[in-house]
Amino acid sequence: MANSILLIAEAHEGKLKKATLSALAAAREIAVRTSGNVVGLIAGHGIDGAAKELAAHGVRVLAADSAAFAHVLAETYGQLAAEAAKKTEATYVVAAATSIGKDVMPRVAARLGAGVASDVIGLSGEGATVHFRRAMWAGNAIATVEVTTPVKCVTVRATEFAAASAATGGSVEAFSFTPSAAKTKFVEFVPVKSARPELTEARAVVSGGRGTKGDFTLIEQLADELGAAVGASRAVVDAGWQPNDLQVGQTGKVVAPQLYIAIGISGAIQHLAGMKGSKTIVAINKDADAPIFQVADYGLVADLFKVVPELIAEIHKAKV
């Protein structure tokens, strides 16, 4: 079982997270180049379905199903993943750069004496020598980095790797491990409820900025017309107009939909860092010199309160 690539999978409400399949794509690429095998690790309470879903992608899955893992705590998940990495003689440990991946992976790395390349957007290097590409300085530079330790930990930006496809040969086996007591306790989770698609997975995203003056009615109507997710700039979230979870940017979510519509957003570098990878970008802003227009495929200089209602009507017409 030497030379495995351990994939830390994530389940949410009993289902496999889509970002995990992007991380699997990266893990597979590493496995091919290093002649290794991908082994999945999934932890939680009641994760049978998610484990099988992952196995249906040709992965040998270790399932740690226990009340001890009902809530993700970096301390206990870190111990578990490091233990699984040792047992499977992993040379790489891979996870998606979600809030969980970011929280847990460095602790795994510290336990394994490994370096961690975070939020990786691509693999490079030759053959079995795998280097990682990652954005620095809010995406102003793309660095190629080398992890110099025998075991290498990696979190990957899900939007940069197409989800891995189904494959045969997978299996699920129970993995039992009792972590030492955590110094951290889960208290509660307050979800942001929305019937709209998830921001990082949506085909289209409509984002509003300070120009909306806090009224997201038009943004939401346009999003619903397009079946799109709603996003926001930091200014909007800081003001408490929209939940944190919707912030797009360097320090929020990174999105890369087919269509991104930025409305009343100036286009600060920190915002661009989170949406520049979108296929088609539309910007609506009343200031013709707003930097957002430099990255927009289609820019409309106008008052959003006047043109967004027109846009909703026109798109509605265009669809029928």
Binding site: V282, Y298, G299, L300
Partner: peptide
Amino acid sequence: KVRVLSVEAPPARAGGQKVPDVATLVQKL
């Protein structure tokens, strides 16, 4: 443990096109 081997500029986007009105925008989309 993590060494930067090189850095490069991010790929540039060829943005900049402006459309005159909503009808043109929707037609182009």
